[in-house]
């Protein structure tokens, strides 16, 4: 591969890696800070993608649209819609054991997929949306547009990172971690646990929506396959776990690092014997699944562990887990 080709390959990895870093930051707010298990990342991602695409595209007979708003407004809309959806899910489930939130979030993701495929008046069904604009698309085109988009994505990552850091160090973030680490004493201290959890979930979902929006603008085309729960949800979980849940920098490193690894395996599996190449995507999936298990077993703190170690109540917590039920 020639040098410029290699350079733009790297650019494309960094763009997608940035979008995943964003998802990881969002998930870190929910899981790392709030201890909430979201198994429907793909759903909130998809809502954001479609919202932003519909808000920014030109008039089309095939789908809802024609608002022609600037990309930034599309992304804001994506965040709001995904956040509202997250609010509805959280309201119902946060007071129950986290397993129920996992089921409900996965259910929401599946239903959203149904809606996207079936409501073709809005989404053009399985044919998908085309002609989604890039930010500043009227000024740059071709390969340099990728560079502009790269900057745009990482600017968003930076903003979300700053917001997440602020949240982490704020009284709000401290209360949240206190709740995560010891629900009983936080409750005794008069913290409104349910309210904090709902807020956490909503903020995380909103950022996931923004990430979805960015991916729609990056590919300029959007179809229901973008909502594939396997890739988006699983990969994000693996990334956050490997990067270090509870640490925002860890989330970014995990997102970018695992995405690079994922991209490199593509080159690698393509060199397999021909009868295996057709199955390469399954092999990669298997590897992701095994990587998640490895991280869970041996590497739970991640590459960059949470810096102020949470007040360790782990043993009491698991003991309580057994007793309280």
């Amino acid at each position: 591969m020639e040098l410029t080709g290699l350079f733009f390959y790297l650019v494309s990895i960094l763009i997608a890696g940035g979008i995943y870093a964003l998802l990881c930051l969002a998930l870190n707010i929910q899981w790392g800070m709030g201890g909430l298990f979201n198994a429907g990342i793909a759903g909130f991602f998809a809502v954001g993608a479609y919202a932003s695409a519909i808000l920014t595209t030109d008039v089309s007979a095939k789908h809802l649209g024609g608002f022609g708003l600037p990309v930034a407004f599309g992304l804001i809309g994506a965040g709001i819609l995904a956040g509202v959806l997250g609010w509805a899910v959280a309201r119902i489930c946060v007071r129950l054991k986290s397993d129920y939130l996992a089921m409900a979030s996965i259910g929401i993701a599946e239903i959203l997929r149904l809606v996207i495929v079936n409501e073709s008046w809005a989404t053009n069904g399985s044919l998908g949306l085309a002609g989604i604009p890039r930010p500043f698309g009227e000024f740059v085109s071709g390969r340099s547009a990728d560079l502009v988009f790269l900057a745009y994505v990482w600017a968003v990552v930076l903003i979300v990172y700053v917001v997440a850091m602020r949240l982490y160090d704020s009284p709000w973030g401290r209360s949240l971690r206190a709740i995560r680490d010891n629900e009983v004493s936080a409750d005794a201290a008069g913290k409104n646990i349910e309210k904090f959890r709902v807020q956490t979930f909503v903020i995380g979902c909103a950022f996931m929506g923004v990430a979805g929006g960015l991916s729609a603008h990056y590919f300029r085309f959007l179809s229901p396959s973008a909502t594939d729960p396997l890739l988006v949800t699983f990969l994000t979980w693996v990334m956050l776990m490997a990067g270090g849940s509870g640490n925002n920098r860890g989330a970014i490193v995990g997102g970018l690092g695992i995405w690079m690894l994922w991209s490199v395996t593509e080159i690698f599996v393509n060199r397999l014997p021909p009868e295996w190449v057709t199955r390469s995507s399954y092999i990669r999936m298997l590897l992701v699944g095994l990587l998640l298990q490895f991280v869970l077993q041996k590497f739970r703190a991640g590459i960059i562990p949470e810096k102020s170690p949470p007040i360790r109540f782990r043993e009491q917590e698991s003991a309580r887990d057994g007793r309280a039920r």
């Binding site: 201890g35 298990f37 198994a39 996992a102 699983f234 979980w237 699944g289 998640l292 298990q293 698991s318």
Partner: peptide
């Protein structure tokens, strides 16, 4: 806490 097992089972589904 059992939530780790839930995450693990999520990965096992993929495997």
């Amino acid at each position: 806490p059992t939530i780790y097992t839930v995450i693990s089972s999520f990965g096992v589904a993929l495997i």
